[in-house]
Design a protein around this nucleic acid. Structure first.
Lengths: 352, 352
DNA sequence: AATTGGCACTCACTGCATTAGAGTGCCAAT
DNA sequence: ATTGGCACTCTAATGCAGTGAGTGCCAATT
């Protein structure tokens, strides 16, 4: 270990950095000659070879075969992004572009989708944005419609304009009037509160003695419970630009590509990774096998949580090959997260 | 032309048929020797070669290079599916499977999605199903919610349980009470009618003298007009199993695949093709370049419209490489269309 | 007149040897 | 500690011969 500290001096780190930068831009193994010219250290190729041998011992770079240059390993990338990276702030032009794009969207109201598409377009990779966490979501309006055989269609609107629907099962039939009454009650009492609060309140009501309540209220509470009880933390995300990934040679193996897209469809892997980023603020990076999913072996995922009112409500990120321009992507992800948070934030639900 | 008729006798057709069948199963150019053994005609390879030369003159088959076997052309496939094909009815086992799958779905109520997935799973290609046509869709319930700056969120439920929403712009602010009244009016008058009828009725109302109506009715009509006027024939479809297509060599060129998936994402091309099938009943097939879209050059699309109450309401189909087992796919598409129509049909909207 | 066997020819694919080039590792010299 | 030199390794590209599948055509056969 003392050895490592000795070896990993400024110079070797500098070399590692230029190697990775060059590899990211060229995509081919980097030899000592190139590195000697590329770095401003004025070292001969021979010296560089020695350093490279050390770096290889440490597992930071790797040689595809005897007479090829070096390629960064996952550990190399990790060290790079953790300590060597010089993140350039975005051009104000690009920030403008993002800002415009996020605000000047159509009336679809799909800020999340827009953000995802912006990420994908600007990075030429895949963009992914989770829907904002439910707890942050305020109930605006609820409505019940009777269906056949005791089922009831629940429609509820959250925040400004997001419409959700769900079918619940009841053990008896209800008249439209009853349901209307229940909805009225719920709307008058719970409108404007976050779903989390609503859920708690309902549980409390159910525990209290129910004789105090009249029939209508009781029905309303029960319906609400059926609707909101199951914490279907609607883990979902918007993924765009997947096709961009087909352009990269390192991902273009048939099987690889198939695995990747199947993972996208099943969502579960991506969700798991994004969830991990939920816990911490700021940009987080998964490089290659670090993700733990085989499908993403050759991919890196750069994520950032985004917040509204200083509370983390979602995650967004970019998926691309491990050989991506981390500096740029990190910058993009970072500001997009902030802009998205801002775009979601200052929309005070206009009180009716 | 008289020549063609002479040449295209039963024997050459028979040979074309076996050639295509064999090519579909093997995927490699078929030579005269193989064909001689495969066909039950007891002809020598030399004879077959003569026939093949004729077929090539007619543009039905094609030789990749001098010393390779023959491969069917688009025209060859076309002749094959039009006149030579022996469609085998499905095993009752498979029909069962489809039937079960369509009926025994979760409460998601997403019959269309289920159908698409079934098609994809059973054929190991991509399945696509359009949403049922709007005209067949009955208005069940409508509701307005005021948003900021004169915008109004419209929620309407069609058929049993499909929830749609849309934002419309108005030139002044409305109170919730006004909107409620308007919704009540619309619900009482138009509930149960198809969207097409509703649209017509509204246009008629607007043309008649409006002084007869009171303020509330007028508002209601205007809101409804904004909602249903633009014939956003919600051209949309559910596409599943795209990843299955990545397994086929003939489609696995990077650029090809990318084009294909981009076409899927943009939807427009697929919609156009499906729309064409809307007009005619029964199974329809687009082979290779027949589609007119470069992205689908190497693909075939087997579609069938599906009907409810003898009226065509949507289209479904399978997308795969031109070298697909048309017999099977046609059978699958055909019965799935019928089963889907049936699954949608006998659900009489329970009168409240 | 259709069918067939025979034969020359074409073309892709394979294996093999060769070459050029890029890059390494190591050693001795600075 | 750094460097130049040198032998070595491995890849990628090239050329070349051999093989096999398949064709097209012609003359013989039925």
């Amino acid at each position: 270990m003392a050895n490592q500290a000795q070896i990993l001096n400024g110079r070797s780190l500098q070399l590692l950095k230029t190697l990775i930068e060059r590899y990211i831009s060229d995509g081919q193994p980097i030899g000592s000659r190139i590195l000697s010219k590329d770095s401003s250290l004025n070292l001969s190729p021979a010296t560089i070879r020695n350093v490279m041998a050390d770096l290889e011992d440490l597992g930071l770079v790797h040689s595809p075969h005897t007479s090829a240059g070096r390629v960064p390993t996952v550990e190399g990338y990790r060290l790079f992004v953790d300590s060597l990276l010089t993140v350039k702030p975005l051009d104000s032009k690009e920030v403008q572009c993002l800002h415009q794009g996020l605000l000047a969207q159509g009336d679809g109201g799909d800020v999340v989708g827009t953000a995802s598409r912006l990420l994908a377009d600007l990075t030429q990779m895949a963009g992914v944005v989770t829907l904002p966490k439910r707890e942050l979501v305020c109930l605006r309006h609820i409505e019940f419609l009777p269906l056949s055989s005791g089922r009831v269609l629940v429609i509820f609107v959250t925040n400004e304009q997001e419409v959700h629907n769900k079918i619940i099962h009841t053990n008896r039939l209800f008249s439209p009037a009853e349901l209307q009454q229940a909805a009225n009650y719920l709307n008058s009492v719970y409108s404007g509160l976050s779903l989390a609060v609503v859920r708690e309140a309902i549980l409390k009501e159910l525990q209290e003695d129910q004789e105090r309540m009249n029939q209508g209220m009781l029905l309303a509470i029960k319906m609400a419970q059926l609707t909101f009880a199951t914490d279907t933390s609607q883990d979902d995300y918007v993924l765009t630009g997947e096709t961009n990934l087909m352009g990269f040679n390192e991902l273009s193996g048939r099987d690889h590509l198939k695995q990747l897209f199947e993972a996208f469809n099943q969502k579960q892997a991506v969700i798991h990774l994004l969830d991990q980023s939920m816990k911490s603020e700021g940009v987080q990076i998964f490089i290659g096998k670090e993700s733990g999913y085989q499908a993403f072996d050759q991919c890196s995922l750069v994520t950032s949580s985004y917040s509204v009112n200083d509370e983390v409500v979602g995650v967004l990120g970019v998926i691309g090959p491990t050989r991506m321009s981390y500096e740029k992507v990190i910058a993009f992800v970072d500001v997009t997260a902030k802009l998205l948070g801002a775009a979601l934030n200052p929309k005070p639900t206009s009180p009716l």
